[in-house]
Each structure stands twice: as C-alpha cells, then as structure tokens.
Design a protein around this nucleic acid. Structure first.
Lengths: 233, 233
DNA sequence: ATAGAACTATGTTCTAAAACACAAATATAC
DNA sequence: GTATATTTGTGTTTTAGAACATAGTTCTAT
C-alpha cells in the first residue's frame, strides 16, 4: 500500500464521468484530496464491518467484492474492472461495509473522501444522478442474480459466470482466452457451488468441447453453447 | 383502477421525506402532477418489460415485487409497505422493468411522473441524495439476500421470511399474529422453495411450537427460536 | 347456495449437488 | 532449488429438497 505522487496520474482522464460533471472549483478540491493506492495480488482493500470512508475507483487491476456467508462460506458478490467505482454504497446507506474487497491481481486504486463526494453531490444534482444511475444498474443486476443463483443448475451458473468474466475482463490477444487468472475456488464462489463441482463441471465443458483449459486459463470455444446453457439454467 | 380527486389526500403528510426536501415551487408542480390510483387485491401494478414512467409511493395496502425466473418459476424479490417508494429503479437505469409488481391486497398508490422527479433531483442535490440512500439500502439488502437464499437451508430461509414479514407489516392486536394474509405459494416464492416445502416446514414449526397457524394467519410463538433458526441457516 | 377452481396437506420417489476421501499436480516460501 | 502448502482432479457416498401423486379443504364467482 504505497501512496504515489498524486500528479503522476491525470485525474481528468482517469476519473471518467465524475470529472466531466464537476465544476472547476470542485475539480481543484478533488485534485488535492484524491490519493492513489497500490494493492498487491490477494491484498485486502477493505473488510466486512469496516467504516466506509473513501470512494474508490479502480484504475488498473481486478477486484472482487465478496461476503462471508453461513459458516464462513464466502461468496463473490460482484467483480470490479477498470474504470469502475466501488466502496460507496455502505457510506450512502449509513452502514458499515457488509462486504469485503480484495485484489485478484495487483491494482491501482484512486481514493476520494466520501464526505467530500457527498458534499459535492448534494450541491450538484447531475453528479448525484450519476450515482443514482450506478446504484440503479447494480440493483437491477443484484435482483437478476438472486434468480440466477437460486434457480439455475450448476452448469447454467458456471456458464453464466464464464460469460460474465469474459464480459468484465475481456479476452486475450487470441480472441478466445478469458483475460483473468482465477482459482477454481473463486470460480466456485462466483457461481455459488463447491470447488469440486466447479472443477467437475469445467471438465465436462472441456469434454463437450465448449471450452479448453490450460491450468487456470480458460479458452471459450463455443460461446453460443455457453449462452444457451446459461439461458436454459 | 379509479383515479381519485387529487386533493382528497394531503400530499404533504403522505409523501414523507420527498415533500420535506422540495422547494415551494416544486411542491406546487408536484401537487398538480401526482395522481392517486387504487388497485384491487391481486391486481398487477406493472409488468416485466413495461416502460417505467411513474415513481410510485404506496399509501395503503401491501405490494410484492417479483420476477419470473427459469421456466416461469416466479420469485418474490421484495415486499413494499406503506409508505415506501417503488418502481423507479428501472427508469434511472434507463431500462424497462425487469420485475413486476402486484397488490397483495387492495392498495392506494400515488403516482408521480419520473421525468418530473428526474428534473427535480438534477436541480436538487438533497432530493437526489434521498434516492441515493434508498437505492444504497436496497442494494445492501439485495446483496445480503443473495447469500441468505443460496446458503441457508429451507428452515433458515422460511424463518427469515417470517421475520421479514413481521418486520415489514407488523403484528395484529394480539401482538403475535403476523399482519398479512399470504398464500403458501407466496411464502414459498419469498423463501425460494417449493410450495410443498413451505407447507411442510411450516407444519414442522407448528409441531415444534415455534409458530401456530390458523388458515393463512401465522402467529409467532417463539420469536427467539425463529431468529436462531434464521441465523444458523 | 353451489359448482368449480385454487389452495393446503402429506406421503413417496427421485436426483442434483454437497460432503468426503485421497492422489496428483502446482504454487509459494524459505 | 528444494520442501511444504495449496490447488486440482476424480471417484464414492450421502442427503436436502425437488418432483410427483392424491386427497381434503377453502375460496370465489355465478
């Protein structure tokens, strides 16, 4: 967790949407309040029950938001890609964090005091509307996720997760390999299944020539089939 | 669906929070744009894929927000009590509704054009922050719900639903009977289980003297036990 | 008031996925 | 670079809960 010199990074190009909406004065204040923090692979960014203090914007890297469920069984709630904002919900709800955040791989995160953000958006309806939109989209995804995770079978849930990972992090140069290096356990936690089941179902997909695996790297061979399996449940 | 004369209801006392935050001009506009609509028991308020046009505030009655999942198996996403706002998320996310809303029992709903609300909150940061808070709280609940519904066993999920119903709609004069008249199917759809399982588990709770049932009326006898079952999963 | 529909109840069977067990392969730390 | 820990892979067993069947009961509409 090393704080870089602020002006190494050009906030105007790195903080999309927000920067555009702010007034000049607000931008100046922001420039002096934001800090950049680096996290190593598997490093925790915040913990369940922590007090939310800063709005975070992921500049580079990959982050998972997860929850410790019944009997400590953890579940990935959502994944963050550059350039997305996170860590603000609990503050706005006047709660402590109910989730934790961890770096999948080394990350650069921009931190902005939430007090400042609240002050800005109380005086800037368009900035506030930007957050209303973020929250509204996420709430829709969460509602859909409840149905997907509870009603789809393992194959459907795994297919869905693979497609979601592709959607979030994209493909490598070969245009087929999902651009993330994920343990089977994380894949399981994202798809709400046991690690054994994730491994087994992944093997089945390989046998059915839907995907190919090389260690932790997953190549999508038949995306259409994957969509179909996800849809069918 | 009969539109009442607007001034029959005193908006200033019926639209909590929002009214307080508005300016006098905004209040005057709102007074002329809001309409009151009544819904009969089991009447649909809006449908999946409908275009969201109005912010709704439930004045009296009880409403369920639900989704048709895989193979048409429907699932209750959240329940609305007076005086709560609903029906705005999709509009803010620039989506059509992904859920449907139905009256559990006869309802009175206040409808306000969302275009107007958006205009208001873009110019009134405090009003916008009110919606940010609503969405933030709901998103936290949704995240928690994902874990509860996927990790808890049927007993835990049913116990949780009973407590949630008590929390939302309260108890009758006897201080024990949950103040809602719900089909077993709805209870199942709220707890993500089959109707058979809801009936069976409810019977078990009766045998264990945790609750008592008289038709659709459910009396909580041992709330502490219910909490424990819900927590344990 | 009565017929038909919808809901409630309970027993039985079946199955998807969890739990468990262990071996092989990788990763990580020293 | 080697030792230890973690992750991956696969077979076997167990179980929670879905699916199905059927009967009794309670709504609801005419």
């Amino acid at each position: 967790m090393v704080a870089k010199k602020k002006d190494v990074i050009d906030l105007s190009s790195s903080l999309p949407d927000i920067w555009r909406i702010l007034t000049d004065t607000e931008r100046e204040i922001l420039r002096h309040s934001a800090r950049i923090v680096n996290f190593k692979k598997n490093e925790l960014i915040y913990l369940e029950d922590d007090i939310p203090k800063e709005l975070m914007c992921l500049f580079t890297g990959k982050v998972k938001i997860f929850k410790n469920g019944i009997g400590g069984r953890s579940q990935i709630i959502r994944i963050i890609r550059p350039v997305q904002y996170f860590g603000y919900r609990a503050y706005f709800a006047r709660e402590n964090y109910v989730t934790a955040a961890m770096a999948f791989e080394s990350c650069t995160v921009c931190m902005i005091p939430l007090e400042l953000i609240e002050k800005f958006l109380r005086g800037n309806g368009n900035l506030a509307f930007f957050f209303i939109q973020l929250l509204s989209v996420d709430l829709g995804i969460a509602d859909q996720r409840v149905v997907n995770l509870t009603q789809k079978h393992v194959r459907g849930r795994l297919a869905e997760s693979l497609l979601a990972l592709k959607e979030s992090y994209g493909l490598e140069e070969d245009g087929a390999t999902i651009n993330i290096y994920l343990a089977r356990e994380d894949l399981a936690s994202l798809s709400n299944m046991t690690t054994s089941n994730a491994i087994r179902t992944l093997s089945n997909f390989v046998n059915e020539r839907i995907i190919a695996i090389d260690g932790r790297k997953i190549k999508i061979i038949d995306e259409e089939r994957l969509h179909k399996i996800s849809r069918m449940g």
